[in-house]
Design a protein around this nucleic acid. Sequence first.
DNA 1: ACAGAATACGAGCCGATGCTCGTATTTGGC
DNA 2: GCCAAATACGAGCATCGGCTCGTATTCTGT
Lengths: 201, 201
Amino acid sequence: MTEDGPRRQARGMRRIASILDAAATLFTAAGYDATTTNAIASAAKISPGSLYQFFPNKPAIAEALTARYVDDLNAIYDHALAIGPGDPAAASKTIDQLIEALVAFHAANPAAKALLGGAGISPDLARITTPLHGAMCDRAEDVVAAIAPTLTPRERARTAEVCIHIVQALMPMILAAPAAARPEASNELKRALVGYLLTPP
Amino acid sequence: MTEDGPRRQARGMRRIASILDAAATLFTAAGYDATTTNAIASAAKISPGSLYQFFPNKPAIAEALTARYVDDLNAIYDHALAIGPGDPAAASKTIDQLIEALVAFHAANPAAKALLGGAGISPDLARITTPLHGAMCDRAEDVVAAIAPTLTPRERARTAEVCIHIVQALMPMILAAPAAARPEASNELKRALVGYLLTPP
DNA sequence: ACAGAATACGAGCCGATGCTCGTATTTGGC
DNA sequence: GCCAAATACGAGCATCGGCTCGTATTCTGT
């Protein structure tokens, strides 16, 4: 599973980081498809040839960047699950805290939307990100299980899927809001989630 | 506002329709960006040169297709608004009927997701579809006003925005479900909307 | 029937883009 | 200090995609 490329020296590690930083900036501005590998190299202040010393092709860049984000998101889910296993009244608290963390994450890593945003991503990018995105869905299921333990596995899976889609749908609205209005926008997301989870079928 | 192109004959009208049909099919399968104009011409069984007798460029094709969909959606909103102006108990009924109509529309026109799906669309496509999408948001506001007349204009706008995003987020899940499970999936969307609208801030 | 407009063709232009290749320089272990 | 490996360069290749252009055919109004 680990990379079997050349043995990187410190300089190479730094280059890889700066390439991913540059790619993140450009992906945020124009999306994956519209971002040129030459533009990434240029933004990272290296030549196109140098870029391909570290990544075999364009999707590999997206993959490495996505892996970064998946690590962060796993930590967020770990934290959310560690908090609320006790009493059922903590459910709302868990949602609160999870949403705050996710908003902070996406505010700090705006390119994640371009890579993990479920809808409208190009076919070859989907091939890269879909498995990683699937792993995130499993984590969300764990959180749903902690909040609503009485659901059947089938119901739980669907509920988690709906919650993920709602979060993904409203996150851009929250991030687009001016910083002052952001808490209000976050509240709308929490309302939508709590409303959905508490409304009987 | 009306087109000032050459005076179309019946043959030309048919060609335009078949081009849009072909484009819809390809957009559904691969999205706007990944679909070639040559592929559209080929699918419509005409040459690339003929295609450009009817459309000045690629975005114009997306624009014409979007206009089709906007007409249909306007009719759907008109119908929803005509039904429920009477009693407040009709709110849930209005949502029910509107969701059914929207699901039927997207099932019949799967390419609409690739053109109007808010997230992840390319810059030049956004330039085309954003104004039309904005008009749809205004219509949704009217529906929200009919359902919850006590909201301030500011609250109403935000509520409509949230509802639109929720619908857009869950629609792909509904359409991806096998036909037998589709009513159940639609119910999840209705639950999410009703839950959001009825949960106090 | 005739003229002009609309429709149709398809090879190919032109710019863009992912990526390569030969070569030069720097680094780190011995 | 030496040498192999890692890093760096950037002009340019191969391909692809939107679109054009010269030309041929079909329709429509009169």
